[in-house]
Design a protein around this nucleic acid. Sequence first.
DNA 1: GCAAAAGTGTTGTCCTTACACCCATGC
DNA 2: GCATGGGTGTAAGGACAACACTTTTGC
Lengths: 246, 246
Amino acid sequence: MLEYNKSIAPTNTAHNQEAVSLVESYPKVPLTVDCAIFGFGENSLKVLLIKSDLAQFSGKYSLLGDIVKSNEDLDAAAHRVLYERTGMKDVYLEQVQSFGKPDRHPGGRVVTTVYASLLNVKHQELSIKDHDLNWHSIDEMIGMAFDHKEILDTCLGWLRKRIQEHPLAFNLLPKKFSLRELQNVYESILNIKMDRRNFRKKFASMGYLIDAHEMETNVMHRPGKLYSFDFALYAQRKQNGVGIDF
Amino acid sequence: MLEYNKSIAPTNTAHNQEAVSLVESYPKVPLTVDCAIFGFGENSLKVLLIKSDLAQFSGKYSLLGDIVKSNEDLDAAAHRVLYERTGMKDVYLEQVQSFGKPDRHPGGRVVTTVYASLLNVKHQELSIKDHDLNWHSIDEMIGMAFDHKEILDTCLGWLRKRIQEHPLAFNLLPKKFSLRELQNVYESILNIKMDRRNFRKKFASMGYLIDAHEMETNVMHRPGKLYSFDFALYAQRKQNGVGIDF
DNA sequence: GCAAAAGTGTTGTCCTTACACCCATGC
DNA sequence: GCATGGGTGTAAGGACAACACTTTTGC
């Protein structure tokens, strides 16, 4: 699935001239990517936002976005935005949806393809601070530019669904984490309370947690054991089609 | 969620001029929509395809697509394609994903936003027959133009997942259907066999099936009862947030 | 010693699965 | 009367939810 067909790369033939002429006749629209960059810290889910460029949206916040270059893959554009804004490479990124209402941008028709990205906040302290780039707690509703509130709501819905079916939580945590931290991620994102014993049993029975043989430090209470997630085992089981729940 | 913010409609102010100038500086790309139109008939899942326009893809098939007009909403464009190709309005349509590899179209850079659509084949007999428009069984792999094989695979994955969580099957069936027809839809799409008794129990317990007090006709065996799906009840329960499985 | 969270098992309920027999209809 | 699918119930197993007490550490 999703195998890329390399046989369609342009060649200089009569056929190709026909195709080129066709495409040249197409209307063109400005295309952007926006990234909803989620992170987790201080026991709550956060999203990275910048202050809007436009005077019209003065004081309002927007998602991290940029134009798609004329010969750039959409995924590549999203990774580039992330790199330019935060300095991070090799970050988990997934396409969520495209938004194309004709009046969603006050400057005219702009279609945007939205990606969601999950970061470990701790690893991001080096980030570039242009445009008042900052983490904002999801709960505090702040004024947002364009249709970015709608987009963020869509991404949050996406995240809530995905985290129950895929091991996304581990992209929001350090490599080694305690079970309490893991549960906090789920509770914050889903906005529910979960039973600690059942939560631990569930993850223990899945068999993806590797005991790091380390303990928490600098906590004001009994320290918990640290674990890491067995991404290799997960990939292997997924490949084998063995029934997995997430 | 997904509430549309009407406050951003263009106005003729200095602010707006700033935004307009900004958007005018953006690179522009050709944008299309493609529809993977699924239907169900003769006990198998089908997809509507046309013969490709391009000589380069002579004999190959492609999804139903068209350009997005410069001031057209993406959803509206998809509905328009559907209407122009099949004559149908008010059809179930959902955005699946956007594809933007720079070389996916031999004529140059074209980004496409893909929608999946589910039709009742029986209702489509009036359809326009341009470009050799025809239903093709999903199983028979046929040569496809562009990256439409990849796109179709993505849509099929989407459909398999969605049909287990949402009542999409009823968009592929007549208003009144037998439980066997319903089960056939699930079995064809998921490519599995299901136990008839458990299947019936499951749907009976959900409470969404309305007894039409009619029987099948023209079948070579004992006729089954016909049911319709209680869309109103489904919408109501969904609204109330009562825990539902699909 | 007190506050705060770690760690741990059992029980009941519900959902899912597996499975077999008689019935109604067309031919 | 035979072929084809319609229609039905039960029992076992697995997953999930509810629930309380002891332990370890920092202060």
